[in-house]
Amino acid sequence: MPKIGMEPLRRKALVDAALRVIADRGSLSVTMSDIARQAGVSPALAHHYFGSKEQLLIETVRSLLRQLRDDTVTALKAARTPRENLSAVIRVSFQADQFAPETIAAWLAFYAEAQRSEETRRFLVIYARRLRSNLLANLKKLCPPDAAGRIAEGAAAMIDGLYIRQSLKSAPINIEASIGLTEDYVTMQLRGIE
């Protein structure tokens, strides 16, 4: 008989375990058994909750996106001006849990998987659109629409690029330096159009 109330806890444990296993392997070539072992549950229980590895991986992407969305909403509530909103979006992109090695490894594995999986690709397109929209909405309050679009694309590219550089570990860039580089880019671009 399953314990009442355990399903949400076990589902979260499996998603967290999937992130750790993906990070360790550096790819999505993991099995349900690998993930279940990391979560401390049986493979049968993992299949019971998710049906398949693909569904567990999709839920892992959803979980990352939900966390990013929730953190962004919280950060935006604290900001008072469009420029503070931009800084909040940038800071959330690099906060400790988003910039953790296992999270970065998972994002990169999902980007690689998006070349084969339409569903994974769809989630990553959602991420890119949200990031651009959050940047663009505030930039449009600070500069003309064409400049806002260009600056938003550049800032989003910097954020994604700094993730890639961090994953290479050849020249790790810490959180504050990543925020600083992106903030400097936005500030210089805004100054250039004043």
Rank of each mutant, 00 (worst) to 15 (best):
L65I: 09
R130Y: 08
A88S: 09
H48K: 15
L57W: 01
I90M: 02
A155M: 02
R121N: 08
L57E: 01
R130I: 03
A88T: 00
V89C: 00
A137Y: 00
R132S: 11
A147D: 15
T81G: 00
K140D: 11
N138F: 00
R121P: 04
S93F: 00
F99Y: 14
R130V: 01
F94D: 06
P43V: 03
L76H: 03
R80I: 00
I58M: 14
A78W: 04
G51F: 05
E54F: 02
Y49A: 02
L56S: 05
P144W: 02
A156L: 05
L68N: 11
S117E: 00
L142T: 07
R91Q: 05
A137Q: 00
A105N: 03
G154Y: 09
T81Q: 01
A171Q: 13
L45A: 11
A155D: 09
L108C: 06
A96R: 13
S167L: 07
P101W: 15
A155Q: 06
Y163Q: 13
Q67C: 09
G154D: 10
R83V: 02
Q115G: 12
Y163G: 11
R132T: 13
K53G: 10
R66A: 08
L168K: 07
K53L: 11
Q115P: 06
L76V: 09
S63Q: 11
R130K: 05
A171Y: 15
I104D: 02
I126N: 08
A148H: 04
L45E: 12
F99V: 00
R116M: 12
D71F: 06
E153R: 15
A39V: 09
F110Q: 02
S87R: 15
A46R: 02
Q38H: 13
L168S: 14
R116T: 13
Q67S: 13
Q67F: 12
R91G: 00
A36E: 07
S167M: 12
K77V: 10
A147N: 13
T103M: 11
L86A: 05
A78F: 03
Q95S: 06
L56F: 03
C143L: 09
T74L: 15
G40T: 03
G149W: 08
R165I: 15
R129F: 07
Q38D: 07
L76W: 02
Q166I: 05
T60D: 06
A137N: 11
I164Y: 15
T120M: 14
K77F: 07
E59R: 13
N138E: 03
K77E: 10
A100Q: 13
R37F: 07
R129T: 08
A44T: 08
F50I: 04
L68T: 08
V73A: 12
T120G: 07
A171P: 03
P43T: 00
N138A: 02
F110C: 11
Q95N: 09
A44P: 06
L68A: 12
R37M: 11
F50Q: 01
L56P: 09
R150L: 14
Q115V: 12
I126L: 13
E59N: 10
F123E: 10
A156W: 09
N85E: 08
P43E: 03
R80D: 05
N138W: 00
L86P: 07
A75Y: 04
A155P: 12
